[in-house]
Write a protein that binds this DNA or RNA. Structure first.
Lengths: 214, 214
DNA sequence: GCTTATTGCAAACAATCGTTTGTTAAAGTA
DNA sequence: TACTTTAACAAACGATTGTTTGCAATAAGC
C-alpha cells in the first residue's frame, strides 16, 4: 500500500520518519527537480525550494545527490540517452529513407510529448552544465542529429527527397519538431498521434521532389 | 575621436573619469547585458560580472538602470515591439495571403538573423520576468502570432493554402523560423537571404493544396 | 535483540547575491 | 569663476546561495 515510491510529499513515508532504506526519496527528488527545473529554470530553483516541495530539509538532499550540478546532468543525460536509444531501436532498423523518416517523426513526437518536461529542460539548460558535462551532452545530440541528416542525404541520393542543403533541412525539421515540447498540452485537443500525423504531412511536402505529382 | 559611445570597456572614457554627461555607459550596459544574458542566461549573469565587462563597479550600474529585472524587461520589450512594428509596417500592408506570407517569412528571418542575441533572450527568459512584465510580453507575442494565423486562415479560405489546423500550422512555421536564432552564424556560409529563400520554399510546400501541380 | 547503516533535522559555513549608502571628482551651466 | 548635476568609487547592507557538520531516530541484517 504505502510501499509505493511516489513523487510528492503527501504520500512519502510520514515526515520525520528516518532510517528506512527505501529509495522513494531519491525518486521524489528527481521528479520534483524535473518539474521545477522545467517550470522555473535551473538557477531559479534553489535546493531549499526543491527540498520544500518533497517535505525535507535542504541538507537532507545530500543523502541522495552528489550536488546540484550532478542532479541536473543526470536528468539531462538520461533523457538524451533515452532518445538516442529509442531511435536506434525503433527507427534505425527501418528500411528505406522515406519509411525511416516517418518512423523518426513518429518516434520523436511520441517522445517529446510523453516526456515534455525533461525535453524542455534539455532545450534550455545545456548552458548551465559544466564544460565536461556539456561536452557529453553535445556528443549525444550530434549523434542523434547526424542520424537524421543521414536519412535526408540517402533520400536525396535515391531521389525520393528533393535536393536541398541537408543540414538546413534538418534545422527546419528539428525546429518544428522540437518546439512541440514547448506548446504541447497533455490534456488538450491535439493528441500526440494527431501531431505526428500532421507533421509527417508537413515534412513530406517539404521534402517532396518538384517533379512528382501528389 | 574618443567621443564615440561604445560597448566595451576598452574605449569607454578613461576609467575613473567621472561626471561626464555622455550616455555611452547606458549603451554599454545594454550591449553587455544583451551579449551576456544571451550567452549565460539571466540568472547566471550577476551585476558584478556585468559591471566588470564594461569596467565599472556593480553599484554604479544603478546610475543607469532601475534594477536588474527592469534591465531584462526593457531589452525584451524593445525587441518584441520592434518585431511587431516591423510586421505592421512591412508585412501587413501586402495584399494577398500568399504574398503576405512571403513578406512575413522574409521579414521574420531578416529580423531573427540581424538581432539573434536579443531574439534568443526573448525565447529563453520570459519566465524570469515578473508576472506583470511577462503579461505585457505575452500580449505582444500573441498579437504577432495572431497576425500569422490570420494569414493562414485567409489563405485557406481563398484556397491558396491547403486546409489544416491553422494553429498547428503556425506552431510548425514558428518552430522552424524561430529556431534560426539558435543556429544562425553571422560569419557562416548561410546568409540571411539564403535561409529566407529556402524556408520560403519549405513553407510553400507545406501549405500547398494537394490538387495543385508544382 | 543487538548492531550497523541510512536518512532525516537543525544549525552553521563561507561565498555571493542585488541593492543602498556616503563621498568625490569631473563636466555642464551661468 | 562659482555652482549644480552627473556618474563614478569603495564599502557595506541583509538576504540567500550551495554545501557541510554533528546528532538523533529508525529500519535492516545477523
Amino acid at each position: 500500500m504505502d510501499e509505493m515510491p511516489s513523487a510528492n510529499a503527501a504520500d512519502r513515508p510520514t515526515p520525520g520518519r528516518q532510517g528506512q532504506r527505501r529509495d522513494s526519496t531519491q525518486k521524489a527528488i528527481r521528479d520534483a527537480a524535473i518539474s521545477m527545473f522545467s517550470e522555473f529554470g535551473y538557477h531559479a530553483v534553489t535546493l531549499r525550494k526543491l527540498a520544500d516541495r518533497i517535505g525535507i530539509q535542504a541538507g537532507s538532499l545530500y543523502n541522495h545527490i552528489e550536488n546540484k550540478q550532478e542532479l541536473l546532468f543526470e536528468i539531462l543525460y538520461e533523457i538524451m540517452s533515452d532518445l538516442v536509444r529509442s531511435f536506434e531501436e525503433k527507427v534505425a532498423p527501418v528500411n528505406g529513407p522515406q519509411a525511416r523518416l516517418d518512423a523518426f517523426i513518429q518516434n520523436h513526437v511520441a517522445f517529446h510529448t510523453a516526456r515534455k518536461e525533461e525535453v524542455f529542460i534539455g532545450n534550455m539548460e545545456l548552458r548551465n552544465l559544466s564544460p565536461e558535462n556539456r561536452a557529453k551532452m553535445v556528443a549525444l545530440r550530434d549523434r542523434y542529429e547526424n542520424y537524421v541528416i543521414e536519412i535526408l542525404r540517402e533520400g536525396q541520393a535515391t531521389g525520393v527527397f528533393a535536393r536541398s542543403d541537408p543540414k538546413m533541412a534538418s534545422f527546419a525539421i528539428f525546429g518544428m519538431l522540437n518546439s512541440v515540447a514547448n506548446w504541447f498540452n497533455p490534456g488538450g485537443q491535439r493528441s500526440a498521434d494527431d501531431i505526428a500525423k500532421q507533421y509527417t504531412q508537413f515534412i513530406h511536402a517539404m521534402l517532396e521532389p518538384k517533379a512528382r505529382r501528389s
